[in-house]
């Protein structure tokens, strides 16, 4: 952290003012109770999405508006904050997301997801890199990871190497950068995110009946729960995982979310609880006056808001009952 923390005064005050425009629970309720997806979308037109919403001719294309909103949000926070490179670190997640999509398209021929124009690399640079195998414009660390993926994939044709390697490099990079900048707040946040990912990996591997060795390679390092303690859990019943984490922050999340996943086969509750967990964690930091915490908190809140809008609109388009939608949306 910088010695003069008052450099954050401007950006934090501005974020506080912007924060008041986030959609609140009442607005989400109105969206959920709306009679159609178009009506639900109308709620957005009253809020910060008014300008973009006028462009939308077909409700099914709402993703482009959400992507544009996310990009605008990141650009704005980077512009007003004093250390854009720290915010850029949070945007790295989207580079990794885009690389995953591109690699899967190239190697597996599937279109897994939309590209999101938010990362630190321009989309055409990434496309060029993956399609032409020319990684010159990538960050050095990424370049190495990407090279490794190509190599390993050609060797054993295992699609898992894409996700594993990219996630690994993402969190390594982020944690490294957080340490570099002496931001214990960010480091702590990333460690928690690694923990949550590892927990999900553990359950997924357990459900697929894969081996302990595989789990070992799949878990990310740097988490607060040690990798070897997690690997043991693959042969244990759920109760021992719960008791192992009983005094940690993750107790509730595991006992509710993981149980539901194992019982009903649906990970959506765990996903929701994980997001809510990070939201709660960041809410504490949002009270800081001089620091990056409120900026990070706002970015996260916006990401959650966009996620929720997506859940509601998809639910409305597919005519899901209001209760089913309400269950899934994240706390705001």
């Amino acid at each position: 952290m910088p010695i003069d923390d008052t450099v954050y005064a401007y950006s934090v005050a501005r974020i506080k003012a912007i924060e008041t425009r986030l959609l609140d629970q009442g607005q989400f309720d109105r969206m959920i109770n709306a009679s159609s997806s178009e009506e639900a979308f109308k709620v957005l037109t009253e809020s910060g999405y008014a300008g973009a919403a006028a462009e939308l001719t077909d409700i099914h294309n709402f993703e482009s508006i959400l992507a544009a909103e996310l990009k605008d949000t990141f650009d704005m926070v980077m512009k007003i904050g004093p250390y854009p490179e720290l915010i850029g670190m949070l945007a790295l997640r989207y580079d990794i997301h885009n690389l995953k999509v591109l690699f899967k398209a190239k190697f597996l021929g599937i279109k897994s997801d939309l590209l999101i124009p938010v990362g630190t690399h321009e989309l055409d640079k990434l496309e060029h890199a993956v399609n032409e195998g020319d990684y010159r414009y990538l960050q050095e660390k990424l370049r190495r990871a990407v090279g490794k993926i190509t190599e390993e994939f050609l060797l054993n044709r295992d699609p898992q190497v894409i996700d594993l390697n990219l996630d690994r490099i993402l969190y390594e990079q982020m944690i490294y950068a957080a340490r570099e900048n002496n931001s214990s707040f960010l480091e702590d946040l990333f460690i928690r995110q690694v923990d949550l990912i590892n927990l999900k990996t553990l359950i997924r591997v357990k459900r697929m009946g894969l081996t302990r060795d595989f789990l070992k390679t799949a878990l990310l390092p740097h988490g607060s729960i040690r990798v070897d303690r997690l690997t043991i859990m693959i042969d244990e019943p759920l109760e021992s995982l719960i008791s192992m984490l009983a005094i940690s922050d993750y107790a509730e999340l595991v006992s509710e979310g993981v149980r539901e996943w194992l019982d009903k086969g649906s990970a959506s509750l765990l996903e929701k609880l994980s997001d809510d967990y990070i939201t709660n964690h960041l809410k504490q930091g949002r009270r800081v006056t001089f620091g990056i915490e409120p900026l990070v908190g706002y970015l996260w809140a916006k990401e959650i808001e966009i996620k929720n809008i997506r859940i509601v609109l998809v639910g409305k388009i597919n005519k899901l009952p209001a209760e089913a939608i309400r269950e899934r949306i994240r706390n705001v």
């Binding site: 401007y10 501005r14 003012a17």
Partner: peptide
């Protein structure tokens, strides 16, 4: 600085 941040919004 804080005031300027708030006023811009």
């Amino acid at each position: 600085q804080s005031a300027a941040g708030l006023i811009s919004e």
